[in-house]
Nucleic acid binder design. Structure first.
Length: 181
DNA sequence: GCCTGGATTGTCT
DNA sequence: GACAATCCAGGCA
């Protein structure tokens, strides 16, 4: 099975279009990897987005070029991973909410505890912990970084992905910008 | 098995 | 000083 790293051009489009295209792609983090099965889109005119109130030290990565990883810390104990979309300065991103573990499962179990595979990476905070992603990875380039990448193994995105309202936020929850494979 | 409430800290106003 | 793109334990059905 051939795995092809996604190139810059893949990410250079609106987050609402990029999000469903990322379904069934594979997130690689060193020895660990998982298939992307749940995503959410965030846009600059979106009150729920960190970029809505303008650029700050925390969300600077989101304003940068597409294909970079935006990692932030939230709720005092969790990290969340986003893929920057759009063009430079656009402040669009796709939040990675859920994965299915493929490789390095024993490593993930060591970090997350002895749980069934699916529970290792079925939430934004969990998948970051399982893959060992933290603030050090904020701003890394998924197109060139040695450890972190998004690859395509030939599996196509689902023809009819499940689309639902977003969850876990308090505003703009009516936007159907959440996709599940 | 489903639902409810508490935990905990960096960042912005 | 308040909030936040969450998780998990514990209680109840």
């Amino acid at each position: 099975m051939t795995e092809q790293r996604l190139e810059r051009e893949f990410f250079e489009r609106g987050s609402v279009e990029l999000a469903p295209a990322l379904l069934n792609k594979i997130l690689v983090a060193g020895p660990c990897a998982g298939r992307i099965v749940e995503v959410e889109a965030y846009r600059p005119d979106d009150p729920a987005s960190h970029s809505f109130r303008g650029r700050t030290a925390r969300n600077a990565t989101m304003f940068g070029p597409a294909g970079h990883l935006y990692v932030y810390f939230t709720y005092g104990m969790h990290f969340c991973a986003n893929v920057v979309a759009g063009t430079d300065g656009d402040a669009q991103a796709v939040l990675l909410r859920g994965l299915v573990p493929l490789r390095g499962i024993e490593i993930m179990r060591g970090r997350r505890g002895n749980k069934p595979d699916r529970l290792l990476t079925d939430g934004p905070g969990k998948l970051c912990q399982a893959l060992g992603i933290d603030r050090r990875h904020d701003g890394v380039d998924l197109c060139t970084n040695a450890e972190l990448a998004i690859v395509d193994d030939g599996t196509l995105p689902p023809a009819t992905p499940v689309i639902t309202p977003r969850i876990g936020i308090r505003v703009a929850t009516e936007q159907p910008w959440r996709w599940l494979a």
